[in-house]
Design a protein around this nucleic acid. Sequence first.
DNA 1: AGTACCACCTGACGGC
DNA 2: TGCCGTCAGGTGGTAC
Length: 261
Amino acid sequence: MPELPDIEVFRRYFDSTSLNKTIVKTEVPEPSILHDTTPQALGRAVVGEKFTKSRRIGKHMLVHTDDGKWLTLHFGMTGFLKYIKGGGNGTDHPAVIFHFDNGYGLIYDCTRKLGEVGLTTDPEKFADEKELGPDALDVDFDEFAERLSGRRGSVKSALMNQSAIAGIGNIYSDEILYATKIHPASSAKRLDREKLCRIYKSMDKILKKAIEVRVDKGEMPDDWLIHRRKPGEKCPCGGETERAKIAGRSSYFCPECQEKL
DNA sequence: AGTACCACCTGACGGC
DNA sequence: TGCCGTCAGGTGGTAC
């Protein structure tokens, strides 16, 4: 599932369950999920320590330990966290488990194994290495406009490009463009300042709303595209949604009200 | 600097 | 029931 709002919800879940408890053991049932580290090194880094705070950069979550290391979590397409008594057998595809001294464990589960868990010394260095642009909820309008305009591809590919702006993926790029009535295949170059401003404002509003409802689809506004991600669904404008491959991904839009620039 | 295509993985779903 | 193709909210490499 995970795009920026999902990761932010994971992060808040993490904060409410897993901070300030001593880690007594780690298990790595799926070592292939580790990036540039080993089960042994991960254990050495966190056992005996506590998680003291977390932060998020785009779709990445980072967790600080009280001796100054940072754990990095990326969720691929299917990753999630579960805090559970005992820790074992709590989910179908546990990849990494952190056991705390209160008898609970935090499971990082990743069905399709497309996620990554690693260690870093510094979030800024990590973001540099990953070539991440500014976080979509952190960037100001001028920088947003500068980073998005002038790109040669589609506006959708620009929004999804983690080096331009970090955090937006397939679902939310479609949602943002639907809200702004701009066709996802529109050329990014043709966006004027007014259009960029509309996109920026929608991005902020949509991401924040999705976080507010804890990415529960049932609580997302009725007029969102997310309820219409099938070909031929009714758009309030009278049109019907279409599906097309844009920027390499299945994209949904309303050809009636989303203007192709 | 873009695109397209493939790869990494597993699971769900529809058609036959 | 089983098999098969297709699809899924991510990303990296490679060849144009």
